[in-house]
């Protein structure tokens, strides 16, 4: 498949998504979330297509996409591991979990594994304060972690 034809397919998919929301400008965030999930991140091409479909300036769309922590404008791993670093999880020992994850995956926080599988990120309070340390892997939440448990969970992801 040529680059042009695969771009066409992606563009058609993006058009469908924006039409699903009635091509309404106020639905931009929901559209970006759907596309972020589908493509793993919001590339220039994706944002330009959204801009065309919504008839909105692309600078504004980039302004929105870059504001939110859960929208990625750079490629990320297939699984994004978000470890909570706010106070209650911090008190409960998130540092040990952080070390274990970094050792296991061989990357530091903020990086992505070379095989593109995992991205490690810190995140702020995810509402698991009584059961910390806690983390999100994509949409799944894990809590009451200890270093071994955390690594087990990582390994369970194909």
């Amino acid at each position: 498949m040529t680059l042009e034809s695969s771009n066409k397919i992606i563009a058609a998919g993006i058009k469908e998504t924006t039409e699903k929301y009635g091509c309404k400008k106020e639905k931009l965030l929901q559209i970006l979330e759907d596309l972020n999930k589908e493509f793993g991140y919001l590339s220039e091409f994706v944002l330009l297509e959204v801009s065309k479909n919504l008839d909105m300036p692309h600078s504004q769309i980039y302004g929105v996409a870059s504001f939110y922590s859960f929208l990625n404008t750079q490629p990320k791993g297939k699984y994004i591991v978000r470890l909570c670093k706010t106070i209650s999880c911090s008190l409960a020992g998130k540092k040990k979990i952080a070390n274990a994850l970094e050792n296991e995956l061989g990357i530091r926080f903020g990086e992505t594994t070379p095989d593109g599988k995992f991205s490690l990120m810190f995140t702020n309070c995810i509402g698991m304060c009584n059961q910390g340390p806690a983390m999100l892997i994509n949409d799944d939440v894990y809590y009451n972690l200890d270093p071994e448990k955390a690594v087990e969970i990582i390994e369970s992801y194909e």
Partner: peptide, 15 residues
């Protein structure tokens, strides 16, 4: 437009 958030906010063009 304004991009990023908080102390990292800056004025920039698309991407």
């Amino acid at each position: 437009d304004a991009v990023n958030r908080g102390i990292d906010t800056k004025i920039a063009a698309f991407f």
